[in-house]
Simulated assay, not measured.
Amino acid sequence: MAPLMEGLVNVPGVEFQWDSGSAGDLHERHLRDSAHDVFEFSISNYLITRERRRELWDWVMLPVYASKATLAVNTLVHVDAGIRSAGDLVGRRFGIPDYTMTAGLWFRAQLYQLWGIEPGEITWVIGRQGEQSHGHQMGFAERPPKGVTLQWSNPAELGRMLQDGELDAAFPAEDVPIDTSTGRVRRLFPDRGRQFFADYAASAGFLPVNHVVLMQRRLAEAEPWLAAALLEGFEAAKRLAYRRDPRSRGVFRDANDDVERQRPVFGEDPFPYGLAVNGPMLATAARQSCRDGLTATPVDLGQWVADGVRDS
């Protein structure tokens, strides 16, 4: 996406005005105001908005996927919790920035796929508060998911609880930091998740992503050419990003100096755009959303793809 933002790739007939910030803050604004014509948004939250509908949330999808779903590789465990692998999380208390966040959905999907762990077998302690929490905005404080235990905390308290052993494990986010220098926590994945993600990709057949690009339905209907033009622009931007920095095709958010070793495991383009190739990923997200209690029935996200790019 960066080459588009830098003006190195253009989309004919489109003039961009970019608004950037932390994903959590931007997604909170989308839920509250829906003020952007085209925007990046959480896949998990998009599934929820299709079921808990509001007139404000009338968005269609472009098959453009962003934000590598690797936040869980930063999971920290208390040194006295006796947790040796992610399979030991059954019956534990896990701190998470927001239960509805897509990074959390994919972590639970990975736990289910690799160890058969159900969401209800873990107590989830949420770090974000009030309107900062997307789950709170979408009504999960008043109508929590059935069969799942959610407890609400705050960003500072979540870190303290892990340090003091009141949580067994947690993963941080930009707005929910956890101090790693105390000697009381350690990484769950010492290899920063390389084997964890290789095992999941081999089992599930794809790599997960957190975000999808959405656009206002009214805009897509008024300008039917726009969806295809934007998809082409995003594709061109990704190709340029890969050429100018080969590490950008790496699976992880940072420390991709081993990208050449990743390629035989994860493929030439680990995060392709388009609807057809991402069908299994989107279907898994919809099933996991139901397993998590976030939605009631699995849905076909392809039905909300903008006309003109459904054959992508």
Rank of each mutant, 00 (worst) to 15 (best):
E6M: 01
G7H: 08
V9H: 05
N10Q: 14
E15M: 10
Q17D: 08
W18T: 06
D19A: 11
S22W: 00
A23D: 01
G24N: 07
H30N: 15
L31N: 12
H36I: 01
F39L: 15
S42V: 06
N45E: 15
Y46A: 12
Y46T: 09
R54I: 10
V60K: 06
M61N: 11
L62R: 08
L62P: 02
P63V: 14
A66N: 13
K68C: 10
T70W: 03
L71K: 08
L71F: 07
N74Y: 15
V77T: 12
H78G: 06
D80Q: 04
I83K: 07
R84N: 05
V90S: 14
I96C: 03
I96Q: 02
D98H: 14
D98V: 07
D98T: 07
T102L: 01
A103P: 01
R108C: 01
A109I: 03
Q113E: 09
Q113Y: 03
L114Y: 00
E118H: 12
P119V: 10
G120V: 15
E121K: 07
W124I: 10
W124N: 07
Q132F: 10
G135R: 12
Q137D: 00
P145C: 06
L150Y: 02
P155E: 03
R160W: 05
L162E: 06
D164L: 07
L167G: 00
F171G: 00
P172D: 03
A173H: 00
E174D: 13
P177C: 06
T182R: 00
V185W: 06
R187Y: 15
R187G: 04
P190C: 13
R192H: 07
Y200A: 10
S203G: 02
V209E: 13
H211T: 15
M215W: 15
R217P: 12
R218Y: 04
L219P: 07
A220G: 02
A220Y: 07
E221F: 06
A222H: 08
E223R: 15
W225H: 15
A227F: 06
A228K: 06
A229T: 09
E232P: 01
R239G: 05
R239A: 13
A241K: 11
F252W: 04
R253P: 00
N256K: 10
P264A: 11
P264N: 09
V265A: 05
P270T: 05
V277I: 09
G279W: 12
P280E: 13
A283Q: 05
T284H: 05
A285T: 12
A286H: 13
Q288V: 03
C290W: 13
R291Y: 06
R291W: 04
D292V: 04
Q303M: 09
V305G: 00
V305Q: 00
